[in-house]
């Protein structure tokens, strides 16, 4: 039946073109954004810009403290968020059956959808108000809270992908359940878990709203966790809403730096975990 075949080939051609076009537009938007940020940002970047603290308009200044602040905040978010997130994911996938697990799963999903500004306000209430001051610690906790549900659910999904036959193989050798989880299941799911963790890092590194209420921002280099701390996103926000062209240019440059930072973190983690998993 040649007619049916002709139709099949036509449908195939149309659908292939359509999906390719969609893929092209999706990537094109991303490339445009990246390209435009590089175009606007590159001009303001210099070595001074990367290491100096902000200065009044017209005197130059840089984002060194904000880069450091973002790194500290992200590290803190990871230290607090990853263990909770990964442990929750392991519980849900390996041990969680029944109503408590369903409840945890439902709440985790809900938490993923909560606007990040609410997390900021919440942490403001429970940490900033009692301490009577903005602090890096509060910022780290806020970012961790956004991270936990993402890490938990990706960890759960990745662990579920580990075939049951691997677990049975380990159990059949006389391995207790916890050794099956730590020795066989987690290593098998590790690369997926790392991907999920990296997505979570990328996601929170772009957060501004929760930091406005918590880490607040600072014009100085600061490494003390009980003090307000600068971050790239808050810096970008402050510069972007200012009326000065110079600060606008610096905001573009800081955006470019932030993106590069995420990229570098991602590549570094993948490089160091590549051989092991």
């Amino acid at each position: 039946m040649p007619t049916t075949h002709a139709r099949r080939y036509a449908t195939n051609a149309v659908m292939t073109t359509l999906t390719a076009a969609c893929a092209f537009f999706a990537v094109a938007v991303l490339v445009l954004i990246l390209g435009y940020i590089a175009y606007r940002g590159l001009g303001a970047i210099s070595f001074q810009f990367l290491i100096e603290t902000p200065k009044p308009v017209g005197e130059g200044g840089g984002i060194g403290n904000a880069i450091l602040g973002t790194l500290i905040l992200l590290a803190m978010a990871c230290v607090v968020g990853m263990p909770f997130g990964i442990a929750t994911g392991i519980y849900l996938a390996e041990y969680g059956a029944g109503r408590f697990a369903s409840l945890v799963r439902f709440l985790t999903d809900t938490l993923t959808g909560i606007p990040s500004i609410l997390v900021g306000v919440f942490v403001y209430t429970i940490i900033v108000l009692p301490m009577k001051q903005f602090s890096a610690m509060a910022g780290g906790v806020a970012l961790a809270m956004i991270m936990i549900p993402i890490v938990a659910r990706t960890t759960e999904e990745m662990i579920r992908l580990v075939p049951a036959s691997l677990r049975e193989g380990a159990l059949a050798l006389g391995a207790p359940q916890w050794r099956v989880t730590t020795g066989v299941v987690l290593p098998a799911a590790a690369s997926g878990i790392v991907t999920g963790a990296m997505l979570a890092v990328a996601r929170v590194s772009g957060e501004t709203a929760p930091l406005l209420f918590t880490a607040f921002g600072s014009r100085f280099f600061n490494v003390y966790l009980d003090q307000p701390m600068a971050s790239l996103t808050v810096q970008i926000y402050n510069y972007a809403i200012s009326p000065y062209d110079e600060w606008h240019a610096q905001a573009w440059a800081a955006t470019l730096i932030l993106m590069t930072l995420i990229l570098v973190i991602n590549i570094t983690v993948r490089f160091f975990t590549r051989g092991k998993i």
Binding site: P163, S165, L166, E168, G169, A170, L171, A172, L173, G174, A175, P176, R179, G183, V184, P187, A188
Partner: peptide
């Protein structure tokens, strides 16, 4: 299960080295 070993229908080596696969049961026990 240590006394009664099992080989499955579908081979299920752990995503580890050949040595570590065989050593697994010796190590955990």
């Amino acid at each position: 299960r240590r006394r009664v070993g099992m080989v499955f229908q579908k081979s299920n080596p752990f995503p580890k080295s050949i040595f570590d696969n065989v050593a697994y049961g010796l190590r955990i026990n």
